[in-house]
Nucleic acid binder design. Structure first.
Ligand SMILES: [Zn+2]
Ligand SMILES: [Zn+2]
Length: 729
DNA sequence: AGCACGCCGACT
DNA sequence: GTCGGCGTGCTC
């Protein structure tokens, strides 16, 4: 039995007296007693006996399904658990919808839909503002709103029942059907004509529609990658085959969804965060039984079972949201590769700024390399103009050049985007008399100064503090905010251009659910305005009226300790630059930097991401870094620094010895303190493994995990293994 | 990870 | 006297 427990092993159980109707099968979901509680597990193996004495065994309490969970799903769970060195039971729990995890039955479900009624006069609700508000919400959904969705909007069941009693709403039980079978033809709207490049890319995809065929679609922003996805999906849907489309976390917007849904008449379903648990299960089943032909979702959607797999598409394949950063640290793009191979189907990875991993596979010929270089708007992507931050005064982080460019953009009736990868007002609060700096009490980091609302906040833990009136060290009142974040730049720009709307877009300003969408809508209306924002703004949103992009500081990744920092920051720069002049107007991109002579930055500005990526790949090859080696990172974490270091040393020593004995060529670096050693009062220590071959890395990581599981000291600290780590944080 | 057991400090 | 702090150990 694979059970929800971090223990990397299976548990033996006796069968129920009556076998289930389908007979005992691997993949059946069951309820079993485990310790002092009951849990939901999955039959992982059938055996005629156990190594445990009979009296230690307990019996299965209940079989939950009349058929095993889908084979492809089981295979993927096994693969992921093994590849990422994780517990199979935990992996399966994570990979199944919450309802199944909780032991609810599959199939035949209904949900309560609430529909608005018009009793004639709205006066009765005047004395019940909350109910009036709820009624207004229902009016926006004339086809009904699920009960769960209503409560998700912050209303109570009582309010619904009250509305029902007064005749303003009625309840209706409906079968959940995420995917209605298609009627009529395949397409709801015709495909768009392709340019020459697009047509030849699609032709390559058509060469091998029914076998494993990994392709990297490298296409600049606005070159029409989505149209290729749509026409590939169309070709497969015509054969009754399903396509699984992965998109980045912020990419699953109503607009993206609408683009897919409006093209096809066949059922398109989406796994997004707004779904209730029941709706999520329904989508999962619609995929598993083949009803849904197009399934769109973020990272976790890679675990959706497919009855008739046709292709897997990963949009913006370089996006960091595909990597899970806790628990099972899987990379959805990498699982997509494994899965496409298993199903023997095409795999399409799309990006304007491919990850070095995928680019290397394409350059070496392992993946087919499809390129789109033309933009329908005719003019080429804007070149980056580097401007020197040294020896110049800036206001809110902006150089005079940048400010005058913003001014002329506004005068010509266009919009400008100012990109700062730092939220808050200022990253540092310092005392001008004695040099004291506001630091977090729980982390090795500084507190960020916020103005809205005014407080000091740590961006690495939840600690918050009121703004001090005076320096706690020397009592001086001369406390100064050093550096700029989005809030400060917003304030500066508002001061410089008082008659223009300045939209700030970061995690703080868009915390409220729909405000981001609302701001975007307003921006898309096209009035001249300024946008100040973090990476949220950089990714794939349609900003057709932006003709100027200003990058406040491009130096983040230039001299960082993390060897991937430059790759990620080049991707970000290229993406932000892609926001400039998307529509009919050519754009400008101003990049402020302290290192205008940096060769990498120069290459990015002069020749673009593709060229920089290729030469950085060469540097990676020479340095023996990924993708030319395979890494695993062991993180050790404890409130006691000594405990974390001690275990790190023990583990590294044991590993070294074993590597020598078995003559396994795997490098082991560390233990070293993590880049920010203390976070939330926990000390972080790293050990990095690197090998030339995946299999060697796997063997070493597997040994290390088993050593840790058997080690008594290791139980006193928290540890986790990260296969193919993306960052050192 | 849960969840219990167990053994010592400061409270009604 | 007991309420609860978290160290230790187990889960077929
Ligand atoms: Zn001071
Ligand atoms: Zn902190």
């Amino acid at each position: 039995m694979a059970l929800p427990s971090p223990l990397r092993r299976l548990f033996d159980y006796l069968p129920t007296r009556q076998p289930p109707a389908c007979g005992w099968q691997v993949g059946l979901r069951v309820r079993v007693p485990f310790g002092r509680r009951e849990v939901v597990g999955v039959v992982a193996e059938l055996a005629n006996g156990s190594e445990l004495p009979h009296d230690k065994l307990r019996a299965i309490s209940e079989v939950l399904d009349d058929a095993p969970l889908p084979n492809d799903w089981q295979w993927l769970c096994h693969f992921a658990a093994r590849y990422y060195q994780h517990s199979l039971g935990d992996t399966m729990q994570l990979a199944m919808p919450a309802r199944l995890r909780q032991g609810h039955p599959m199939g035949g479900r209904t949900q309560t839909l609430w529909l608005p009624l018009s009793p004639g006069d709205d006066l009765i609700l005047q004395r019940a503002p909350k109910q009036a508000e709820l009624y207004a919400l229902l009016r926006q959904h004339p086809h009904g709103l699920a009960g769960r969705a209503v409560t998700a909007h912050g209303f109570t069941r009582e309010q619904l029942l009250a509305l029902q009693k007064k005749g303003y709403a009625r309840a209706q039980e409906t079968a959940l059907t995420a995917a209605q079978p298609a009627s009529g033809g395949l397409l709801a709207s015709p495909s768009l004509p392709l340019n020459r490049e697009q047509a030849s890319a699609l032709a390559v995809l058509h060469e091998k529609l029914e076998s494993y065929h990994p392709c990297l679609l490298e296409g600049v922003t606005g070159s029409g990658k989505t149209e290729i996805y749509l026409q590939l999906i169309e070709a497969l849907a015509a054969k009754g085959k399903q396509s699984l489309v992965l998109v980045p976390e912020i990419g699953l917007t109503p607009q993206t969804l609408a683009r897919f849904k409006s093209r096809f008449r066949v059922p398109v379903v989406a796994l997004h965060s707004g779904l209730t648990d029941l709706e999520r299960l329904d989508v999962w089943e619609a995929a598993a039984n083949g009803r849904a032909l197009v399934i769109i979702g973020t990272r976790s959607a890679i675990f959706t079972p497919l009855k008739n797999p046709g292709a897997i598409i990963v949009d913006e394949e370089h996006d960091s949201s595909y990597k899970q950063h806790d628990g099972l640290r899987y990379h959805a793009r990498d699982l997509a590769v494994a899965r496409a191979h298993y199903h023997n189907i095409p795999l399409l990875l799309g990006s304007a700024t491919p990850s070095f991993e995928s680019l290397q596979q394409a350059l070496s010929g392992t993946y087919r390399h499809l390129r789109l270089t033309q933009r329908p708007s005719r003019h080429p992507p804007a070149k980056l103009e580097l401007i020197d931050l040294r020896h110049q005064r800036r206001q809110g982080g902006l150089l005079p050049n940048a400010i005058s460019a913003i001014k002329s953009t506004l005068t010509s009736g266009k919009q400008a985007l100012v990109f700062i990868n730092r939220r808050g007002f200022a990253p540092t609060l310092a005392c001008h008399s004695c040099g004291w700096i506001a630091e977090c009490g729980q982390c090795d980091s500084r507190m960020t100064l916020h103005r809205q609302p005014p407080l000091l906040a740590c961006h690495h833990c939840d600690s918050r503090r009121a703004l001090p009136d005076a320096c706690p060290e020397c009592g001086s009142g001369d406390l100064r905010a050093l550096g700029s974040g989005t809030e400060r730049t917003e304030e500066t720009l508002q001061g410089l251009f008082p008659n223009v709307t300045v939209h700030r877009i970061d995690r703080d300003s868009t915390r409220k659910k729909e405000s981001f969408e609302q701001i975007l809508k307003e921006i898309q209306r096209g009035e001249p305005c300024l946008l100040v924002g973090t990476q949220m703004l950089a990714k794939g949103h349609h900003l057709p009226h932006v003709t100027l992009v200003v990058v406040v500081n491009a130096d983040g990744g230039l001299y960082a300790a993390d060897f991937r920092a430059l790759e990620h920051s080049a991707q970000l720069l290229e993406q932000v630059a892609g926001r400039a002049g998307r529509a009919a107007h050519p754009g400008r991109v101003l990049v402020q930097t302290l290192h205008p002579d940096d060769p990498h930055l120069g290459q990015l500005a002069e020749h673009g991401y593709g060229a920089l990526a290729r030469s950085l790949l060469e540097e990676r090859r020479l340095a023996g870094l990924p993708p030319f080696c395979f890494m695993a990172l062991l993180r050790i974490e404890s409130p006691h620094e000594e405990a974390a270091i001690a275990l790190g040393q023990q583990a590294a020593q044991a590993l070294h010895q074993w590597l020598t004995i078995v003559k396994l060529p795997v490098r082991c670096l560390g233990p070293v303190p993590a880049p920010m050693e203390r976070r939330q009062n926990r000390y972080h220590v790293h050990i990095m493994l690197a090998a030339d071959k995946r299999s060697q890395r796997h063997t070493a990581a597997n040994w290390l995990v088993q050593w840790l599981e058997a080690n008594r000291e290791a139980r006193k600290v928290r540890w986790s293994i990260d296969i193919d780590p993306q960052t050192l944080a």
